[in-house]
Amino acid sequence: MNISITKTTNPKQKPDQNDLGFGQYFTDHMFIMDYTEGKGWHDPRIVPYAPLELDPSCMVLHYGQAIFEGLKAYKTSKGEILLFRPEKNMERVNSSNDRLVIPRIDVDFGVKAIKELVKVDVDWIPDAPGTSLYIRPFIIATDPYLGVRPSNTYKFIIILSPVGAYYKEGINPVKIYVESNYVRAVKGGLGYAKTVANYASSLKAQVEAKHSGYTQVLWLDGIEKKYIEEVGTMNVFFKIDGEIITPSLEGSILPGITRMSTIELLKKSGIPVTERRISIEELYAAHAAGKLDEAFGTGTAAVISPIGEFNWNENSITVNEGKIGPVASKVYETITGIQSGDMEDAFGWTQKVL
C-alpha cells in the first residue's frame, strides 16, 4: 500500500531541547490507517496532527479494546536517523493484537509507516544529550456499538513526541515500592500484552507509591503475591552473588525489547543470565547476606534505570550504596551507544531512516 502525505499548513513552535520532559510535546503530523471487516487494513495516510473525532458509543471508550507500543528514533553525530529494533515492536503489536482480537498489522508495512512519519517530522528529532524522538503506535476499536464483542472497525495511529529522560533521576538509581496489596496481572490474563487495561490497573498503586516518595512500583505475582514480576514501566534484573537473574516470562510479564537486548548483550559478553522465578523473600535474603550486588530496570523509555532502594512491607533496603553498578552501567553505555550511532552495531539492531 502507498502512504499518502498531507503536510500541515500551520507548523508548531518546537520546544526547548533542554526542557523536554517526557510525553509533553507532539510533532506536526501523525499516521492513520483504517480497518474495516471484509476490506482489511486500508487508506494509510500521514496527516496534520489533530484531535480524533469519535462517536460517543465508540467501543474503545466502553470496553478498552486497545493496544499500543513505544520505540524511539535517534539522531547520530553524523546526522543519520536510526531506529532500534522496530521490527520487534511491530511483532509485539501483533502479539498484543492476537490477545485483544484485533486484526494483525503486516510487520514490514508497520515499520515502513514508522519510517515515513519520522521522515516527515525529521526536524523534530532533538540532538541534545539524552534526548530522542519517542514513537507511539497504537490501535483502537472504533465501532459505534454498546455490546461486548470485538469491534469490526479499527484505527492504527502513530504519533511522535520529542523527549528527554523518562525519570527525573536520569541514570541515577530510583526508589521502588514493592506492591503487596494490589494485583496487576495473572497468567492467562493480559500481562504479556501491551494493552491499556494493564496500565489503568497499575495507577492506584503507582499514586500511593509516589505519595510515599517512591518512583515506581514493583509488582509481585497475582496468585501468591510472592514472586517478582516487573516494575510498572520496566522489566527487572538482579545481580546476586555474581549471577544475573531476571524473572522468566510466564504469561503475566511484558516481554520487553530492551529486556531481550540486555540478555543478548550480556550473553555475548560472556556474562550468564538466568531467567527464572525469583521471590521477594529471596531478594531480601540475598541483601541480608551481602550478595545483592545490583538491581536495575530495562525499558524503551528509560533504557536502563538502576534501582537504589526497595521498600517491601515497610522494610527498606539499599542496593549497592544507592549507586549504579558496573553491569547496569555497561549495558546502558552499550545500548545507548548503539542507538546513538556512537558505537558499532555488532548485533544488527538498528535500522536507518535517513
Rank of each mutant, 00 (worst) to 15 (best):
A289Y: 04
I67M: 13
G322H: 03
Q216H: 10
Q339W: 09
F31T: 02
I304L: 11
I157W: 04
L83P: 08
R99I: 11
S316N: 15
T258C: 03
E116F: 04
I114P: 05
I125R: 04
K14H: 12
R277P: 01
E282S: 10
E169V: 00
H42W: 07
K323L: 09
C58L: 03
I280Q: 09
E37R: 06
G322V: 00
A50E: 11
R277F: 14
I5N: 06
K88A: 15
V178E: 01
I157D: 03
F296Y: 13
R184W: 00
A205G: 11
S202H: 09
I67W: 02
Y63R: 00
A141S: 09
F296E: 13
L117H: 03
K210A: 14
L117F: 08
S151I: 10
L254C: 05
R136W: 01
I81S: 05
T131I: 09
I158Q: 03
L249N: 07
T27G: 05
I102C: 07
S329M: 10
P15R: 02
D342P: 04
I5Q: 09
P137V: 06
S269T: 07
D108N: 13
R136A: 01
T8W: 12
P173Y: 04
R259I: 05
E314S: 14
A288T: 11
A113G: 01
P103Q: 10
G189M: 03
